[in-house]
Design a protein around this nucleic acid. Structure first.
Lengths: 370, 370
DNA sequence: CTGAAAGCGCTAACAT
DNA sequence: ATGTTAGCGCTTTCAG
């Protein structure tokens, strides 16, 4: 019960304290013989190095912290997964904290991680990062995920405009004549999606487009009532393609349509666009555009590594905004830098838009969400 | 950039170092006035207490660690969620590590957490805990989730036998005459499910039962080939109810059945029994029995608290095995104790067994997995 | 409330 | 290659 410490190991192994420390941190500096003896003693005694003491004395921890707004959302998990793999690749640990949709908790864990002398911290913030500007000037590298803004800082986000564009292009490809976009563009991200949709359709003036900006919360119920409304229109006023700004919204629309006797995708095709890869409603799997969470997590860690090593790793495109960007000089701390990575979403075609094949396996490891 | 430390705060606020420490740890001991001054200074300077140093000096951390085998499985997430809420309730933080299906990593994070002087650690182990018996005698409270064995230790698991029993009872209720159980009982957990099924059926000797112990890995492909085999039987030799020992297996069976022109659930009903609440195959949602991950996480934390406070919290039933149990005397370390909690799974009726209502919302917060 | 001082367990120089 | 020692930043005590 009494915790065994490094001095115990040293005494028990008949070597000096510093030697045991070396065995732990610079094994190559020891005679294999001694090393073996020490390791045996360590195991025999069940010695566990006190990480706190290690870090206090040594410096850094070779581990990253990731603060997620919630755990029951596939997107966040993809981020976690991508971040984890990339972190391991660089020899870092990844610790995850669940902020549970709570601003206070998010902040709490953020501070906790920085206080633990993590090598770097990532957040998928619920609010804009402007919200806690204190963090930006902290001594620990930090990367914001799933969001971007023009404040100095490091950001990785899905390309929301592309998200809208992609789904609109699908509609066009499917020969839509009348597209209805459904949902309140309450957040910047949703606004960008709408923008993307409009941009794609600008090239096709013959296609009628209509936006139903209704409902307060973009819930399935909102979707249902809108769907019901659409169902009651005469067939020439009814859209042949509905885009839900969120997947739950789209699911609601589908339910309503089917309940009212309108078939999906035969009479009306429906697509979501926020990437719940498994979204389904009743029995019609929903076509959607998935933001590449895995990729975002990966890039996040890369940006962390970049800050740590103080030089770029990947040769990805760099978006520089305003005059707030300086050239990175090796070995020098860089302030005021604004670094953004946009990651392109991918389309998941499913039955609700009459996919070519029903089983669009799409290689990605999403199946496990089941 | 240079990290601000407690002495900086003290100097800047014009108080002594010890007072700042008190402001952090025993705010009630300070004049409100001084406290306010100190807090302002802390914010102004952006001071973050070095957690490592704190813990080294102070003692415990008020935080728990949770090691999960993977993040993309709903069950593990439910555990995380339940554990998190319960932990917060007691004022503890919860840090999660993803072992990514890797024994080594699992062990690594386990040691890491113990080395961080966490107040307690939970694991959902991939292997039996016998695998690393070293952990059991560590100075940090540890609870094993989703598994139980007779070694000394603390365990919380789903009641696998009940899982089998529940699904068998459903089959009976649905008027089954011929039940086929499909899958290799490769793990103890699966064996228990089979046992539960048999126990339930023991009361109904008129029902024919058959076990197809085929395939190596209980994959969807295994399920498919078994399903195909079943489909080819003559109708009087064909079961009217198939129980897959895992959900993917059951999904595979459904696919095969439908491909061969046998309708589900009209001709053959199919159920899984490992609780992927969203499991579906083609367009037939799968009935399954879900282990209550949330509850398991909650109980896990409770057992941790129990070890910490060295006295029982919940008045749940206690399974004591063998003579290896001692009465807990307050203030005394208790070794050799074997404490198990079994949590009862719940049934999720869906279309594959002809659920009464298609939309069985089942209150639980599973929807977000979408 | 202050000021001083003793560690917490470990790492990284520096000697040997 | 191995032993010795000075901190790392903080919490606690203890006397003012």
């Amino acid at each position: 019960m009494a915790k065994v410490k490094i001095s115990d190991v040293a005494r028990e192994a008949g070597v000096s304290l510093g030697t045991v420390s070396n065995a732990l941190n610079h094994p190559e500096k020891l005679r294999p013989e001694t090393l073996k003896l020490i390791n045996e003693t360590i195991n025999r005694l069940g010695y566990l190095p006190n990480q706190s003491a290690r870090q206090l004395a040594g410096g850094t921890t070779k581990s990253f912290g990731l603060v997620l707004p919630r755990l029951d959302h596939g997107f966040s998990l993809q981020i976690a997964s991508g971040a984890h793999n990339e972190a391991r690749k660089h020899g870092y640990d990844l610790l995850i904290a669940n902020a549970d949709n709570d601003d206070i908790l998010e902040d709490h864990y953020l501070r906790y991680f920085m206080g633990t002398q993590m090598s770097g911290v990532m957040v998928q913030p619920m609010a804009s990062p402007d919200w806690h500007p204190a963090m930006t000037k902290m001594p620990v590298p930090i990367v914001y995920l799933d969001i971007h803004c023009s404040e100095p800082g490091y950001y990785v986000a899905a390309d929301n405009e592309a998200q809208g564009r992609i789904i609109a292009e699908l509609a066009i490809a499917r020969g839509a004549h009348h597209i209805t976009v459904v949902g309140r563009a309450a957040f910047m991200q949703l606004t960008l999606r709408v923008l993307g949709i409009h941009k794609a359709l600008a090239l096709h003036p013959d296609i009628k487009i209509e936006v139903i900006d209704a409902g307060e919360w973009n819930t399935a119920v909102d979707g249902y009532s809108i769907g019901a409304q659409i169902a009651e229109r005469s067939s020439d006023e009814r859209p042949d393609f509905v885009i839900g700004l969120s997947d739950v919204l789209a699911s609601g629309v589908i339910s309503a349509l089917i309940d009212k006797g309108i078939s999906v995708p035969e009479q009306v095709r429906v697509a979501g666009c926020d990437g719940n890869p498994l979204a389904w409603s009743g029995s019609v799997p929903l076509t959607t555009v998935a933001p590449p969470g895995y990729e975002i997590g990966r890039k996040g860690v890369q940006l962390l590594m970049e800050q740590i090593e103080n030089k770029p790793i990947a040769k990805a495109k760099r978006v520089r905004i305003g005059s707030a960007v300086r050239t990175v000089t090796a070995g020098t701390a860089t302030e005021d830098i604004n670094r953004q990575e946009l990651v392109r979403p991918f389309l998941l075609k499913r039955a609700s838009t009459q996919a070519s094949t029903q089983t669009d396996a799409t290689a990605i490891n999403l199946g496990a969400y089941l």
